[in-house]
Structure formats: C-alpha cells, structure tokens
Nucleic acid binder design. Structure first.
Length: 850
RNA sequence: GCCCUCGUGGUGAAAUUGGUAGACACAAAGGACUUAAAAUCCUUGCCAUUUAUGGAGUGCCAGUUCGAGUCUGGCCGAGGGCACCA
C-alpha cells in the first residue's frame, strides 16, 4: 500500500471535474433548483484564510445539495473595481486593469486548488465592460423612475482617499478603508433614493426567516424608524422668521419646553453669514463634531440668537432659540425643542447655559412634588405640571393623546421619521463604473443615449494627476451629443453598486444583450443560501435589498421581493499575534518555539511577545498563507481543519497542530480504506457480523444529514472521526463482515464524508469501483430503533446505575430488573419507594426517604 | 447611554431541545515499541485514600420541576452593533 498522495489525487480529480464540467449549471425545470452563493472576493492578489473558510462552507453545502438531487448553481466572480487597484497601479506605475487581471488569474488558480464545486462558466468580473454596461443601463432605468437624483449636499469627505464616502462607510468618524478622520464638505453628488424604501426595507426583514436575527436587528436599527410628531413653533424676534418646524417623539413633554435648538446648517443660519461670532462657532462645531472623543464626552455648545419661540400649548411661555452643536441637519428638520427634564442632552445643554425648566413626568413610585435633579428622567410614569394633559400615563397614553390635541389645534401633525438617508454613490475615483451622464455648458444634466453605452473607462490615464484622474482626461471628458457640446460626468459609481446586483448577473452571465434574462432569473432567484462575513450586515446586504426593490419598482418584474432567502454569516479566522522586543509585528514564520517560549527565528536571545489571537490581517502579520498550506497538506486536509474546530458562525483559531492532525487523519483514513478494500475482496463465510455496521451507518446518515441541515459543520467533522473510530475497531476485529453490507455501508459512509473531503472520497470510491450512482443516502427510520436501551436509574434524581435492557419494557419489568441488580442492595434496602417516575426507553427515577 | 449575542475541563467545543454533562479534537502527564529520538499505539483527566467507589461540578444567587447546561427572575463578566437620530 502506498501512502495517500494528496497531490496526485487532488490534481487528478480537479482536472476530471473540470473536463467533464461536473459543476456546470443549466436550467432544468424538472428539478428543484438551489442557488448557493458566497460573497465574491475583491481581487487583491492572493486568497486568504477567510476566503478558504467562506468558500469551504459554501462548497460543503453545494455538494450536499447536489447529492440530494437539487439542481445547484454555485457561481463565482470578482468584485473588481475599487481603490486598491488604483493605489497599487500608481505606486508601481501599472495599469489598474492589468493589475486586476493578473490578480484574478492568480486567485482563480488558488481557488481551484481548493477543489470547489464552482461553475466557472458563469464567472463574472465587475470591471469588465460586459458587466458595467448593464449597470449603466440600470442607472438610467432608475434615473427614469426618479430613484436617482443629483443634489448639493454635505458629504463625508475622506482626505486620504480623496473621495466621498457613504454614511455606511464612515466608522467611528473615520473612513472605512483609509482610517482618516472624515471631513464635511459640500459637493454636488448623485444619490440613490434608498430612503423611499425605508418602510419596505423594514417590513421585508420580517419575511427573512432564514437570516440571523443579529443582522436583522442591525438593519432595523440602521433604518431607524421612529414615531412622533412635527410641531411648528411660532417665533418672534429681529429676523424675518415666523415659525420653526421640529420633529419630536415626545410631544407629551411639551409643557417642559425650555429652549429651541437649531443645527448650524439650518436655513436660518443664512441670516448669520456675516456674523463673525457665529462663523467661529460653526467652525468650532465642525471641529469637535467629528472626533471620537468629542462625541464620547458629548460636550454641548450653543450660540444664542435673538429669536424666541412660543410654546404652542402655553402661548405665554417664550423660550430662547439657539444654534447647537448636537442638532443634526439631516434628521427631522434640523431643529429640536429642548425639554431638559426628560432628555439628557437637553439637560446638559440647559445646565451649561443656566436655562430654567420644568419637570412634567413623574415616575410611578414618586410623590407629586417630584422634581428632576442631577440627570434627566426619560422613563415611564405620569404627566404632571401639564395642565389639561395631567395624569396621562407615559408613554402609552400621553404621546398619542397629545398628538391628537396638536392635530386638532393645527399645531402639529403625526409623523414617522427614518434615520436611513439616501445613498450617495458618486466617487471621485478612476477605477470604477462611469456614470452615464453629461452636462451642457450651462451645467444642465443629460443622460448619455443608450445606444452610446457603455461609457467606457478610458485607458492610458495619468494616475498621478491631483484629484480624480478622469477630470484631467479632456479628450474623454468632452463629447458631443446631437451636435451639442457636453462634458461627461467624471465621478464613478461606488463599488457597492456593482455588488448590489451581481447575484442577478450570475443567472445570465453569458448573455451579452441583457444584464439578466427574465426567465433565467425567474428560475434561479432568489439566492437560497448566501454566505459571507458579518461586516456586510448593513452596507452590501441593505444595498442589495434596495436594488432589488428599485429594479422592480413600478413594474412587477420580480416574483420575489428579497434577493437572499437564506443568509449565513461565518466567523473570522484568527491567529495569535507576535511582537519583537521593539514592538514590531512578527509573522508566525519569523518565530520559533524553544521549550515553551517563542524566540525570533535564529536568535535565541530575542524573546517574542505573544499577543491575543485576532482576526488574521496583513497589518498585524498574523496571517497563514493558504497557498503554502494547501501545498504542504492538501486541500482536503485544509478543508477538514477549517471546518473542524468551531461552529462556522463563530471565530475559529488557526492551529498548526490542528492542521497537522487533519492531515494525519487522512493518512489514517487511507490505511483504513485499504483494509476495507482487502476485506471486500474476500469471500463471505459463515461467521459474519453485519447488523452493527448497518445500524451504525444508518445512525451516521441521520446525524450527518441533520448536522448539515443545521450548519453544524464542526460536528460533522466530529462525526467523521467517530465513524473512523468505529470502523477501525470493527475491521481490526477478526470477525468477518458480510461483504454486501460492508460494500453498501462503506459507500454510504464515503458519500457522507464527500462534502467535506471530496477528492479523498472520490479516490476511495473509484478505487473500489463504486463511483457509479452516487446520491445522498436516506435514513432508514426502522434501523434507527435500538433493540437494547441503556436505562438510567436515578434515585432521588441522582444517577445511580445504567441498565442495558430490551426496548419498550414497562415500568414493572424494569423495576424487577432493578431489584435483581446488586446496587439495589446498597440503595434500596430497608427503604420505601414513595414515587416512581418512569420515562419510557429512557430513565426511571425512584423517590425514596433517605 | 441604548440595542443584540454569549458565559460548559488546561484549550477549541458536543449534548437527540427538560432526562447518562464533557462526544470529537488540540495540548499536557504517564506508559508501550525503540540503543535513542521522531512517528505510532494505549491510559489518565476536578476533589477524596490506588483500579473499584463516592462527592462536587456547565459565571453567581434564587425559583419552577421527580429531574435544569437547557425554562423563569435578579446579579456579575465578555464580545459585537449603534452612538448626540430629538
């Protein structure tokens, strides 16, 4: 017997699968379809362990589903536009297109070596004209539907990447990619009207039964629906301002009104353009507004105007109007009414500026004379000091009743507000999808005629020009449409636009005329299982949901409402971090273990500091290169390890020992295979044992099938080990096994293993000529029934013995067996049994007096 | 501050959904084979006197139940999301 040679075996099967186009998917209406999709990678150069985990999980599922008889589509593509290409190209004086192309071909080879069951015929790349020409058409389609518009707005400006960022791309006030503190800038931008779908996007979440709750909660919070009321406050003062509108969720606290606060960008600020003090204040706000510390401390500052606002429920009360740094322009009306007693922010502000306020809500356990001190009270209770509103229950009665009164008196109006803002899609970058728009000499917008699409990205670009390189490309920029001079839009689309519809493109990837063909989408969509990282919980997953709705808007094109029926978010791959004595990061192969202490490789005096295990990242150097690992241990071993240690939704620790163990296990499994092969060759004799194997196999079918259905992939690996432990003992026993049953059972077992270790199992099946008619085995319910049961005998709830008896025996029979057993002498002698709890085929609990 | 999730051996984790806690693996210790090492195989796993046998035991405290890792309430701790959203 030869050692198991993963290299030749894996290459052989990968070639075979490719040649026979085993994973090619075609519409077949006689079969139930299954669309399995993993988030497509950005072609950065090499695959990383995160990809290995993501794509292994998807591959296990795809293979399992096709063995079950589903018509599986499992495609792969490239999220190929984006900044890294542009940066890399600038640094190395390359063409972003060539750089991207090269990376794609490297990564494709690496993915192929994992033995993934991917239909490569459907491969797409978002940077190809073939792809983005359809995207430009969709852009125009949405424009015609009124879902795309251009406006001048404050935007998040990333000073390092020199581009605008969407709200979703700003994390802790910093750019998601560059980490630079984001600045506010006023620019003309293209927007997708995602907020039009706020309610729909919120409602749709309820239908997503196979999504993790966590993601749904995150999206729900991000959409941020709140129920309240808009109130118009009459104003008096030296400005031509008659009233100011505010949005509030707490109109019931109106009698606690103490001041009115405006955003510095509120339209009233136009009267202060020449006011130096106001301009200074505004500067101060934008400075403190963005830094993390400022937000954490939350210091409130204000600028008092000469206006006063009148309480609509109590016209004799007039309060000052301020500009304040904590009021956001893009939520509600950019103006709030301040009620310090019941809102902490308002409380802080009132305290700082010494404003008077009244307590209007009393907690239920407090006296009528209750007064807010020290901090605001925002909990439930009863309204006080509020004239005709007094005694209303807060919040169940108070809010609705107050709104009714305000509506009746035409002071206010019921209103629902969303936190979700429109999606700014303009990016001042070269390497992205051109926006098919142009401007005439007066700045009027026009669309590029559809016949002139795609608007191709120009080549030979000077990437070293300042700002957007497309802006400098005058021969591309200046065009003539219908004899009239125009200038092209030089911004490109946010790359999240590309990934918002790629799942549709896969249904028709080879169709040149359409982005997707209706009947193909009708067959394949929605994606049955989408698998990817939790980091896209809001960004990509929300945008994709929006895009689907936007495309279907006003023409009931789609039979389904949501693009991703099932979502699975896998955890990250982590590794310990290492630092040398100068606090520089070290990679795992720059260190060595001597005794129980890590040292810098080749330097026994240089101790290495071991840090916590963190998600693998280049910056911390705690990465393990999948290509090397596959080379050393083979794809099946890597797959087995990456599945084994933790549930797929949790983070997993990379462990060299664990990796080696998986590799060794396959060697052992190969030895076992050869022993079984020998057995199969022999003839049957009389002394055969078959029932145990048959039953065990059947139990495993049941276990592994259930674990696959529940995404308990780590348990499947345990099941594989369990099966090995069982088989090796069985085979090494001298007893002969019925050859027919051994063959049948072993074939089933190999099929059960195959989603995880496909090359190995294909080789084994082929080796014993059982590669024909491969399908997922079914559990035989009759075989699951055991004849003998381990009955747990408890005395006063404590386990005292286990009796192995026949199944379905009744309480009395079991009791008689118990009395014969030696332990009853010890526990039951001279004791009376007060009560017996008998659970059929499981346990018996005897309650006695101690 | 608000919201969500999770606390099980030295470690990663299982547990048929209320019924034998720790499957499976990693690490460690002891042993076998070996001149030796590696590899391989076996055993152990917290406390009590050694195989046997007891006892404690799933973050802490109560509760429901014949029986709780699992259900209920409170507390403590960890991780994640949002963060002046009125």
């Amino acid at each position: 017997m030869e050692r198991y040679n993963f290299k030749t075996v894996e290459e052989k099967w990968q070639e075979k699968w490719a040649k026979l186009k085993v994973f090619q998917s075609k519409i077949d209406t006689s079969k139930e379809k299954f669309y399995c999709l993993e988030m497509f990678p950005y072609p950065s150069g090499n695959i990383h362990m995160g990809h290995v985990r993501n794509y292994t999980i998807g591959d296990v599922l795809s293979r399992y589903k096709s063995l079950q008889g589903f018509n599986v589509m499992h495609p792969m593509g490239w999220d190929a536009f984006g900044m890294p290409a542009e940066n890399a190209a600038r640094e190395n004086n390359l063409d972003p297109k060539e750089w991207t192309k090269k990376n794609i071909s490297t990564m494709k080879e690496q993915l192929k070596k994992l033995g993934l069951s991917i239909d490569w015929d459907r491969e797409i790349s978002t940077c190809s004209e073939e792809y983005y020409k359809h995207q430009q058409l969709f852009f125009l389609e949405l424009y015609e539907k009124g879902l795309v518009y251009r406006k001048e707005n404050y935007v998040n400006w990333d000073p390092i990447d020199q581009t605008v960022l969407a709200n979703e791309q700003v994390i802790d006030g910093k750019g998601w990619r560059s980490g630079a503190v984001v600045e506010r800038k006023k620019l003309n931008q293209w927007f997708f009207n995602i907020s039009k779908f706020s309610q729909e996007l919120l409602d749709g979440l309820d239908d997503l039964k196979q999504w993790p709750n966590k993601v749904k909660v995150m999206q729900k919070n991000w959409i941020g629906k709140s129920f309240g009321c808009e109130i118009a406050f009459k104003t008096e003062g030296d400005l031509p301002v008659k009233e100011i509108k505010c949005f509030t969720t707490r109109p019931d606290t109106l009698f606690g009104f103490s001041f009115l606060a405006l955003s510095v960008d509120h339209e009233i600020s136009k009267y202060f353009v020449d006011d130096k003090k106001f301009q200074e204040f505004k500067k101060e706000c934008s400075r403190t507004g963005t830094t993390e510390e400022a937000i954490a401390i939350g210091e409130k500052i204000g600028f008092k105007t000469n206006l006063v606002a009148i309480n609509p429920l109590n016209p004799s009360q007039k309060v000052p109007v301020f500009f304040a740094n904590f009021v956001l322009m893009d939520y509600g009306f950019g103006a709030v009414f301040g009620c310090p007693a019941h809102d902490q922010r308002d409380f802080d502000f009132a305290k700082k500026y010494g404003l008077n306020f009244k307590t209007v809500v009393k907690p239920d356990n407090e006296k009528d004379s209750f007064e807010v001190k020290g901090e605001a009270y925002s909990g439930p209770g009863t309204l006080i000091n509020s004239e005709f509103l007094n005694n209303l229950k807060v919040p169940e009665e108070s809010i609705v009743k107050t709104i009714d009164i305000l509506e009746e008196r035409k002071i206010g109006q019921k209103k629902i507000n969303f936190r979700l803002k429109d999606w700014g899609v303009s990016r001042q970058r070269y390497w992205g999808c051109p926006i098919p728009m142009a401007y005439d000499e007066d700045g009027n917008v026009t669309t590029i005629p559809k016949k002139d699409l795609p608007v191709k990205l120009p080549e030979n670009i000077d990437l070293n020009s300042k700002g957007n390189p497309l802006n400098a490309k005058t021969d591309w920029k200046n065009i003539i449409i219908n004899g009239k001079k125009y200038v092209r839009e030089t911004d490109t689309l946010d790359t999240f636009v590309c990934s918002s519809w790629y799942y549709l493109r896969f249904c028709s990837s080879n169709n040149l005329d359409y982005g997707f063909r209706q009947e193909e989408v009708d067959y394949w969509m929605p994606v049955d299982q989408y698998i990817g990282g939790i980091e896209h919980a809001i960004l990509h997953l929300l945008y994709s949901r929006f895009f689907m709705k936007a495309l279907g808007y006003k023409n009931k094109k789609f039979k389904f409402k949501e693009p991703f029926e099932g979502l699975f978010t896998q955890g990250m791959v982590c590794h310990e971090t290492y630092k040398d004595k100068n606090n520089n990061w070290l990679s795992p192969d720059e260190i060595e273990l001597i005794g129980d202490q890590f040292f810098k490789k080749g330097d026994k005096n240089h101790k290495v500091k071991v840090g916590p295990s963190e998600s693998m990242s280049k910056s911390k150097k705690n990465v393990i290169d999948p290509e090397n690992i596959i080379k050393s241990y083979g794809a099946d071993a890597v797959r087995l390890f990456i599945l084994s240690d933790s549930p797929p939704e949790k983070d997993v620790q990379w462990s060299d020992q664990g990796m080696i163990a998986s590799y060794k296990f396959l060697q052992k499994l190969w030895i076992l295979h050869n022993k079984i092969k020998e057995k199969i060759k022999k003839k049957n004799d009389n002394d055969t044992e078959n029932e145990t194997l048959e039953k065990f196999t059947n139990q495993m079918i049941n276990k592994i099938t259930n674990n696959l259905e529940g995404f308990n992939y780590n348990v499947i690996v345990a099941n594989i080990y369990e099966t090995y432990n069982f088989l090796i003992k069985l085979i090494e026993k001298d007893k002969n096994i019925d050859i027919k049953i051994l063959k049948e059972s072993y074939k089933k077992i190999l099929i059960l293993f195959s989603p995880a270790i496909p090359h190995f199992t294909a080789e084994c099946l082929d080796d014993i000529n059982l590669l024909e008619k491969i399908e997922w085995p079914k559990t035989d319910k009759n075989l699951l029934v055991e004849d003998r049961i381990d009955y747990v005998v408890q005395i006063n709830g404590k386990k005292r013995a286990i009796l192995n008896e026949s199944r379905d025996i009744d309480q009395n029979t079991l009791m008689s067996k118990i009395k014969l057993n030696k332990f009853s002498e010890k526990y039951l002698k001279d004791k009376s049994i007060n009560k017996i709890i008998f659970v059929k085929n499981r346990l018996i609990n005897l309650l006695i007096n101690e």
